[in-house]
Simulated scan of single mutants.
Amino acid sequence: MTDDATTELPPVLAEIRDDFLALGERDRLQLLLEFSRELPDLPARYQNAPGLLERVEECQSPVRAFAEVEADGVHLYATAPAEAPTTRGFASILAQGLEGLTPEQALAVPDDYPFTIGLTNAVSPLRLNGMTGILLRAKRQIRDQVAAG
């Protein structure tokens, strides 16, 4: 990642990245577990119809997510089982980090963001690929909604 990409990171995602990088590896895992407990609840329209959320095939755990573009910005809704705290933590980071961004800001988030938060030695590459899958899926959904007007 270039310095330009780093400076263009939305403030919440930059802060999350910096918080992770300020810690040792063991503490980074603890922070990820804290994020797993902060995954926002689904709105009622999704709680009653989880099939409206798209399955994230790149995740080993059953993760479903959907990004919406509303007048007040982007919202990422996701579900991940409590017994998969790593994946749930990644979903929470992205839900919090994309919240309220303009579509342009969300689409500008580097695809390799999951690899920049200092977890490459602490979690498996498959799990990092799962987080990347959530991000790429959200960006595709945002692009589709913007194109549809």
Rank of each mutant, 00 (worst) to 15 (best):
Q60H: 05
V109F: 11
E104V: 14
R127Y: 08
R55L: 12
L32K: 07
E68T: 12
T79F: 04
R137L: 15
G24N: 13
E57M: 08
R17C: 04
A84P: 03
S36N: 11
I117H: 09
L107E: 10
L94K: 08
E104C: 09
R140D: 12
P10D: 02
Y46W: 14
P81R: 10
Q145A: 13
P62A: 14
N129A: 13
G89H: 03
A122K: 13
A22G: 04
M131E: 00
L53N: 03
G97R: 10
D18F: 07
V63N: 01
E34N: 14
L101Y: 09
D112S: 09
D18Y: 03
P81V: 06
R143F: 06
L119R: 14
T2P: 00
L23K: 09
P103G: 00
A49Q: 15
D18M: 06
E70G: 08
D18K: 13
L119Y: 04
L13D: 01
P110D: 05
Q60S: 07
Y46A: 01
L29Y: 03
L42V: 11
L21H: 15
T116V: 06
E70A: 13
E8R: 08
L52F: 11
E58K: 14
E34H: 11
A5P: 00
V109G: 01
R140I: 14
K139W: 15
D72S: 03
P103H: 11
M131H: 05
F35R: 07
Y113C: 00
R143M: 13
D19V: 01
P40H: 09
D144W: 11
D72E: 11
F66Q: 09
R37H: 13
L9P: 00
Y113N: 01
P43S: 12
D3K: 03
M1T: 02
V146F: 14
R55A: 02
A91G: 06
A65C: 13
F115P: 00
